[in-house]
Nucleic acid binder design. Structure first.
Lengths: 220, 220, 220, 220
DNA sequence: TATGAATGAGAGTTCATTCAT
DNA sequence: TATGAATGAACTCTCATTCAT
């Protein structure tokens, strides 16, 4: 418990410091200060800055994979429905966890050695979640795109870019964005949903609960 | 002449070093080595690492703005045609200038003070090029999206992501990517072009010539 | 304790290094070497070379002010007696603390910003100690000079110059110098003491004890 | 001619830059900028920063020695008269050449090797001018001090300190200062002149004309 | 668990200086 | 005479990291 709190406190500070300064621009002193700890205290929990990044990034990807899959498993075995909840889950994740998303999408490439390899594996796994849905939709004739890979990348890009510009204080609401991005994703795949159909798809459950405290912005 | 070569040589090395290590991860010694110069020689041309980044980023954005506009001016006053050439120009720019694109999209936020302000201005200008086309397409009824801003961001995101994963050695050709991304962009805007129409739009001229040597990958 | 020793050790090294090479000519490596520490250890105690100079100079002035005033408070409320002990205290301070005096008198002007302002304040305070005595002697008719300011500066200059040329190994003893400088000071103020009177004034107590270890030459 | 102008221009800039930043704090770039020349131009005239300082300091001392002696030779063979013109010449020199005086009195010790030796020689020569007068006054019974050396140092200190605090814009006029410092010097030597006698001594000619342009403040 | 003290390596930057032109 | 281009050494300062306590 204690230990976990200490770790999570540091991971949260690392996340915010990495997010605002970048991995290389953030010093361990910065992180310690943000955590309200002495420099050396960090070394009790993490053997190096690199390991802290790895822990943060790896854990975040694992959680994303688990929860994304859980959400998909909650809807029918239908590519369109599955695609929609996958997109919606990702879009909301980016909007509700801007800080960790920034680190995930920009600083992951700062990992080296085995850490880099392991994270690249989970990244691929995360990407494949949607990739498989797209492929199955193509196979079933529901989606009309040439390349599953390209379409998947396109849809991911749209959602991922949210961490670059979306801020809760902006004039676009998460609901607006979720709706439009869902529409864009379906259109990319060759489906232009009617308003009614879109409404129905937006009513499918996409549970974001249970996020780890050092991932969610709101616990910051 | 001499001076320009010296500068450009350094800018090219800075671009590649920033691209592979990140602004904060790249040391001036790294850049100097890549340029085949001594450490201090860089300070003859640039007063600081920050200024070198600014010069690189600002110049690249200005060239992008100029050439993107020129390409658009070469087609009819039609939102669809203009959108297509804008998208195709951007996609090819990202594929042919991966290195500088990486820096532009990731390290620009490392700029501080006036440099940051000035670059944010040109970034907005660059974004508005496509934004205005989307808006005019909405106004004319050609495009059917709710938010010009969101649609523009989505299309940009798709093209921009190329710098993250596209490599000339991959199995997808630039032509394939260009075609699919053009299709996605039109679909996002509510237009699903026939194969014939898409072919016609892909035949519109999109000149990428005349790129500055320190921007283009091929001169590396 | 530990911390204070560390600081004082560094301040002593800084004092000697500044004294022999000047603030700008002294490198932090020089100081570290003199202190028997690594370069970076200095930054554990002082955030910058400038701050180390400030600490040294400010502390030295404060101690001078306190002790000079204490010595003056120990004699009668008589301008002549007070002037004499002030002069004698200053002269001995310069001879017994040549190193710090050199820094005080030459390198103080290297301070910048708030540090410079604060030190100028204490410098004025230190000067005013003797200035007020001179003024009161003028007011009482004991001293016959036109300008208290000029006379005070003249007397200070004589004593201060000791740090430029006085060395314990020279042929003039501190007692000789103290006697003659006391005589000069009184003569400047229009009083030419008899030998008897001068002897009496030189018997007034001028305690130099309790000097901080990083100020006094003898602890070097 | 041309050459001399170039040299003098640089010497003037060096003087001002050294005066405000100190020898070690002043960079050759600073001097070049002040002179309105390129960095390398300085190396045409002076082989090093050190040599420029030497040239400046040595020349200034030589001129001081020559002119001080000339002024003394113009009065009667009387220690009091000679002392007075020596003091007055020095005091005015410090007030009219604050910049070069600052460098002379503070940065001379930055000279190394033969340069240091040679300058120490001329410094001693300069000091001896007044030292010999004081000694002859002691010998003749005109001055009543124990140590010619100490009295000479005291008088020099008073005048030299002018470069530390005297500024033309202050409220004390050069004439006031000259009068009081003359009085102090005589008093130190055991002579307390009447007002009439002091007036007479202040009427003795002390020509300051013909100062080199890179020595005099007014040519700055 | 946590810290204060210390370090070696390396960061960005400036320095005096050189040299071909 | 003067400059632009370049360099190696040194600078102040920050870094990630260690270790005794």
């Amino acid at each position: 418990m204690r230990s976990t709190n200490g770790r999570n406190n540091i991971l949260r500070s690392a996340r915010d410091t990495f997010a605002s300064k970048g991995f290389d621009g953030a010093s361990i002193r910065d992180i310690a200060q943000a955590a309200g700890l002495s420099l050396s205290a960090l070394y009790y929990y993490f053997p190096s800055k690199q390991e802290a990044l790895y822990e943060l990034v790896h854990t975040a990807y694992m959680w994303y994979i688990d929860h994304s899959r859980a959400v998909i498993a909650d809807v029918a075995d239908d590519p369109t429905e599955q695609l929609v909840v996958a997109v919606r889950y990702l879009a909301r994740y980016r909007m509700e966890n801007v800080s960790v998303s920034t680190v995930l999408l920009r600083d992951t490439e700062r990992l080296t050695g085995d850490n880099a390899v392991r994270v690249k594996d989970v990244q691929r796994e995360a990407r494949d979640i949607m990739g498989e849905i797209v492929q199955s939709g193509i196979d079933s004739g529901a989606f009309t795109v040439t390349s599953a890979q390209l379409a998947t990348r396109a849809i991911h890009s749209i959602c991922n870019s949210l961490s670059l510009w979306y801020r809760p204080t902006g004039d676009l609401t998460p609901d607006d964005i979720e709706r439009d991005f869902t529409q864009y994703s379906l259109r990319i795949l060759g489906i232009d949903p009617t308003k009614t159909e879109l409404d129905r798809l937006l009513d499918l459950p996409v549970n974001q609960a249970g996020m780890l405290d050092f991932i969610s912005d709101t616990k910051a």
